[in-house]
Design a protein around this nucleic acid. Structure first.
Lengths: 350, 350
DNA sequence: GTAACATTTGAAAGCGCTTTCAAAATTTAA
DNA sequence: TTAAATTTTGAAAGCGCTTTCAAATGTTAC
């Protein structure tokens, strides 16, 4: 006798399954379904069960935009990197995304190509998309970008370098101190002239910091970095080779070089090999990053390990905490390690 | 006489600037402002000017969620990669993001860690966020994931391998043919036993394809790949070293190895150097990818160049076209090139 | 000058959710 | 047993935009 049809009225067959459909099936009000989704503990157990059952059978998937509009929270965060096609930032992004996903946040990503204008456009687009929070690399950018962010009143964090935490929350490490420490080490080996193969300094405060660190070390020796001993090129192995060629073509070349990033160091090492310049016999080479190659290449590279993964993870944690209302403690500076391997040694005795 | 105050009523000072605020300032209806944003050519020139002016002075930024809710388009697209911390996928992601940004799309990214379950969760989350389209790597995944996507009726594209285009649109190249070609080349040098150092095959159809390609080449020689000559490990230099150790510890080891990805090949080369196995004198090493290191390392690596950047770009273009209504032609297979360098040569004469 | 048509505009109805507020149900106290 | 306090629920009002529809305006043709 009982009629088998159970959803005779109001065929929701076509189009998307809405929260209202769930409410009907579960015989509760839409408000209750919404509560089940957002604060389940505020709903009676049996209703909650009915609702979950209904969600299951209908295959209901909440509509993010509608939620965002009503709740003023999108559960999306943005991250703008200077580049995302390398292991360095890739590792940070990976950790950031992972940590965010665990907290049920979705991440929007973009690469700015080290260009502040492009970065601003990305930030604007992300803001438009409704991000709840934002991660940016470094501090050097258009004032307008900061204004845009503060106009939207969302939390943000800067990464990969330190900052005055009162001004901009930052998850990073002290590039300058790390560079100084590395250079100190080279001086301690007896080198007197240490060249610098740097990435492009403009719009890259990390690179600037590292250069400043080298200069700090120089200053402690009562010396200064000669103009000829500083070269600046885009990051890349080829550029590393070119810079090594240039710097070694001086009448009396330096006996050591500090590279602003690892690809440059690999280029330097390859080029040195090509020119029969012994490393570290005639030239010591050191760098930053400690990626997977550093310990494998020959000679093994002396380098500063940078906490790439930790940066992504800590930045995410900081934002998550901020978003969930607890004002987290300002992030502590992360550690770097000087990893001494085989590419550095005493200068040649002449 | 004239009163200077121009916005005496309805102070919008607090909170977000809405489209309605713009409408007031420009003295037009909200509908017209909306039109200016979406189809400016349908609005009178002078009104359009007034509106743009108002947008400027108010610093109006549209509310994405509201737009998405009303228009059923979010201008966000998703991309799930197995990993994003390496140059390979990083390059694809970078190109994808770039191309999408040029078309004013925002991209949500996630890494699945080669885990179909995690991939499904990411897809679900992205769908929830309201993505208009989706990019996935390879074809092997839970049926449920495909169902989820088709329930939302959004376009998607699979990348990094070929597919029956009638079933799943795919932007990629023929991993199997490329591997066959590479192996053919090694056979043509005179090798008779060619080992395979593969990534983990499970849930990785690209790796499976490559292995199948090697087997195809073997078959043409009337031979078969010996079980001992196939080893499988996660991608990584360390694993490459380990696999080389293993495969070379056989009484009569192979005279060549094909590596499923470049880090494995670098591991193999480093380990060979450590064991004083001459490459290519005693052992030829070949791989896939052609990343920046391949042409720099010593010996320079023979490898198959894969169109990483093109994949990201073409995938994006395909989705953009689909989203804008023009049914684009199904993507053509991309080309790979066998780049012969110094890590491969004739087998040792015994 | 008017009729017929094309173009530009605004009013209003949602899009699918959250959240306030008050009513209903339940528990606790007296 | 009843009153008071507490918890659980539903009705309804938006969130900020797009889009339909009809009205208003502008153009062209006769």
């Amino acid at each position: 006798m009982g009629i088998e049809l159970e959803s005779a009225s109001k065929t929701p067959s076509l189009g998307r399954v809405t929260l209202e459909d769930v409410a009907h099936l579960a015989k509760v009000s839409p408000a209750t379904v919404s509560r089940c989704l957002n604060r389940p503990e505020s709903v009676n157990l049996d209703k909650r069960a009915r609702v979950n059952q209904a969600i299951q059978t209908l295959g209901y998937v909440p509509h993010g935009a509608a939620r965002a509009l009503a709740s003023k929270q999108s559960r999306m965060v943005g991250a703008v990197f200077p580049a995302i096609d390398n292991t360095l930032f890739g590792t940070s992004l990976d950790a950031f995304q992972r940590t965010m996903a665990d907290a049920d946040y979705t991440v929007i990503v973009a690469s700015s190509d080290y260009d502040p204008v492009r970065e601003k456009q990305h930030v604007r687009r992300m803001l438009q998309s409704g991000i709840d929070a934002l991660m940016l690399v470094g501090l050097a950018r258009d004032e307008e970008t900061y204004e845009l962010i503060s106009a939207h009143a969302i939390p943000y964090v800067t990464v990969w370098r330190l900052a005055d935490q009162q001004v901009h929350p930052a998850v990073g490490f002290d590039n300058r101190a790390a560079a100084e420490h590395l250079t100190d080490y080279l001086f301690s080996l007896g080198h007197e002239r240490i060249g610098v193969l740097s990435g492009i300094l403009d719009h890259n405060d990390r690179a600037q910091d590292r250069l400043a660190g080298v200069r700090d070390a120089y200053a402690k020796q009562g010396r200064t970095l000669a103009d000829n001993d500083l070269i600046e090129r885009p990051f890349g192995v080829e550029q590393g080779r070119e810079m090594l060629r240039l710097i070694m073509s001086q009448e009396i070349p330096p006996t050591a070089v500090v590279c602003g990033a690892e690809p440059l160091a690999y280029g330097a090492i390859f080029e040195a090999a090509a020119q029969n310049i012994s490393v570290p016999g005639e030239l010591s080479v050191a760098a930053f990053d400690d990626t997977w190659l550093a310990g494998q290449i020959s000679p093994k590279l002396t380098t500063v390990r940078t906490p790439n993964m930790e940066i992504g993870e800590e930045a995410a944690k900081y934002l998550i905490a901020t978003l969930s209302g607890v004002q987290p403690p300002l992030p502590r500076p992360l550690e770097t390690d000087l990893i001494i391997r085989d590419s550095t040694g005493r200068p040649p005795t002449r």
